[in-house]
Each structure stands twice: as structure tokens, then as C-alpha cells.
Amino acid sequence: MGKKLTVVLFSLLMGLSLAAQAQCLKPTEGAAKAIFKWYVFDGDTLDVGADKRLRLAFINTPELGRSGAADQPLAQAAKQAVVDFMQASKQVYWQTDARARPEQRRDRYGRHLGTLYNAKGEWLAEQLVRQGLAFVVSMPPHVSPACLWWQEAIAKQAARGVWATQLGKELAASEVAASHAGFVLLSGRVTKVSSAKYDWFVELDGDVALRINKQQWREHAGMQPQIWLQQTVSVRGWMAWRSLSKAQRQRGYKHGVLALTHPHMLRLTE
């Protein structure tokens, strides 16, 4: 009986531990501002004034089609989930990351980066990840907490939301084309690693290379990409597709370049 009780108690404690890992709490540091007027632009972007646009940190949602392009799968569902969260919340707060320097509190489009939560302390980002309507991303200094990665793993295991669509399937590096530009999940074998002044370029077995800022990478990882040679990696991030001259193609330049921003965005698969 004693042994059985020990096993039961251990299982309960493990369950509580896992639940704690999966629960995202509202930020404890950083200035919070109440939001009273808002307009949902898409699944990760809101307007809260005539000249202020907010971009949720830690996640990326499917893109709405622009200029006649089709929506990505579940883009409208992600947008509606944000609307539902805002309408159901009596009060909503916006909070910037206390670790971010002033110049890091906006993205390259000028959008303010941070987290949005309600009076209960519920994160909007977590709600989207939990429903399978967002991918988790880490872009320093906005490094995603473990609870979000945990929720993503649960959603992926359940084939929920994007994980049941083509967006949730890894693209083989050998199949990369211009049409894949944007946020992607990518898998490929590392064939070459070269070093420039500020960046490493990690070439995969396809028309794509990973660009890694040396200073940023060293702040978050002790490993250098040379150890990945001939290994298969799974990465996520935004891939740009660039035009190349004949000379650049002859020198082996890749059309696709994916900026790898943090070790969270990479996994060695063999």
C-alpha cells in the first residue's frame, strides 16, 4: 500500500509540475498600460490609436492575404480569436519587456513589441498558441518563456490548428523556392559553414542558407555552428528570397536566406 501511495503521490506531483510549466503568468516587470480602444489588424497585430500599432512578442500567426493574395490557412481564425479575447476581457493591458532597450521595443516596421493580457492575468499569446493558431518564436531580447514552447508542443501533438495544415509541416531545404518566402519551418542537412565579419552563414542542402549574427548568438549559446556540419537541423524563422547575379550564383550564393535569431529556433535532428 505504501509503495502504491508513493507512486500516486509522485504522479500527482509530476502532473502539478508539468501544469506549472504549461501555465504562462502575466509579466512581473515592465510598465503596463490599459487599453480602451482597439482594432484587430490580424492575429498578432492590433491598432490602439491613430498612430500606434502593437505587435505581440513571442509568437507569429498565419498571414492575411494582401494585394489580392490569398490568406494563409487559419489566418482569419487567428484574427477572430484575438477579437474574441478582447471582447471577453473586462480590461486588457499592454506591457513592454523590461529587458528591452528603447530601440528594441519596436520592430523594423515601427510596431510596438510586448505582451497583452487581461485582468485575470491570461496571456493573449498563450491563448493563441494553445489553440494552435500561432507559432512560438524567440527574437532577443524577446525570448519566449518555456510555458509557450510547452503549449506549442501540446497543440502540435494534438494536431490542433496550424499543426493540421501545410503551415505546420517542415519544408525540406532541397524543395525551397521563391514562393516559400516568409515565415517557415525548415529542415535540411548542413553542407557548409562560412564566417563573415559579423555573421555566420550556414548552408543547407538546398537553395537556402541560415544567417546568424555572431554577437547575438554568443549572448545566448555557447556552441558555434561549425559543429553542425553534415548534421540535419530543423529551424524556424523568416526567409527572404533575394535576386542573384550570374557571378554570385557561380560563387555558390543561395537565393534563400533565413535569419536564425536564437537557439530556441533550432533543433538538431541527428
Rank of each mutant, 00 (worst) to 15 (best):
G110K: 07
K33G: 02
G237R: 05
K197G: 08
W163P: 05
W149E: 07
A240K: 09
P27D: 07
V233F: 04
A20S: 13
V176P: 06
G237E: 14
D84I: 04
F58R: 02
S243A: 14
T45D: 07
A77H: 00
L128E: 09
D97I: 02
W150H: 08
Y93D: 01
A153E: 14
F85H: 07
I212D: 11
M265W: 00
L210E: 14
K26W: 04
Q80I: 03
T165D: 11
A32P: 14
Q23L: 13
G43I: 00
W94C: 01
Q104F: 12
S179F: 11
V208T: 01
A69L: 05
A125P: 06
L113Q: 14
F201Q: 13
L258W: 01
K169V: 12
K37V: 02
A20G: 11
M1R: 10
K3P: 01
I35E: 00
A22T: 11
K156W: 06
A88S: 05
S194H: 09
R218Q: 10
P73R: 02
R108D: 14
V92C: 03
K26N: 07
W163Q: 06
A69Q: 06
V48N: 01
N213H: 10
G222I: 01
Q127G: 12
K37L: 01
F41M: 08
G168S: 08
G132W: 10
I59A: 07
L171A: 04
V136E: 12
V7R: 10
D42R: 01
A196C: 06
Q80L: 05
R106V: 15
G114T: 06
V257H: 00
V233T: 03
A221T: 00
E63Q: 13
S11F: 12
A172L: 14
F135G: 04
R55F: 07
G256P: 03
L46E: 03
E170W: 09
E126W: 01
D207M: 04
Q127M: 08
R101M: 09
V83L: 12
R211D: 15
L16D: 07
F58N: 13
R160I: 08
L268A: 03
D205H: 04
T6M: 06
T28P: 06
G121Y: 08
A57K: 00
F183Q: 08
Y109A: 11
R251L: 15
I154M: 13
V257N: 01
V7P: 02
S195M: 13
E203T: 14
E29D: 12
E270N: 13
A172Y: 11
Q127Y: 03
A69E: 03
Y39H: 04
K192R: 15
V8C: 05
Q230P: 10
G65F: 03
R66P: 04
H264S: 07
A100C: 14
Y93I: 00
K4M: 07
D199V: 14
R66G: 03
L133K: 01
A153C: 06
L258I: 02
A119R: 10
Q226A: 15
Q91F: 04
V137K: 05
K90E: 05
V8L: 13
L56R: 00
K26G: 02
M14F: 15
Y117M: 02
T261R: 13
Q226C: 12
M239G: 09
E203G: 08
R105K: 15
A181G: 11
Q166I: 10
A155C: 11
L64H: 09
Q226W: 15
Q104Y: 12
A172P: 09
V184N: 14
V257C: 00
D207Q: 05
G188R: 03
R242W: 08
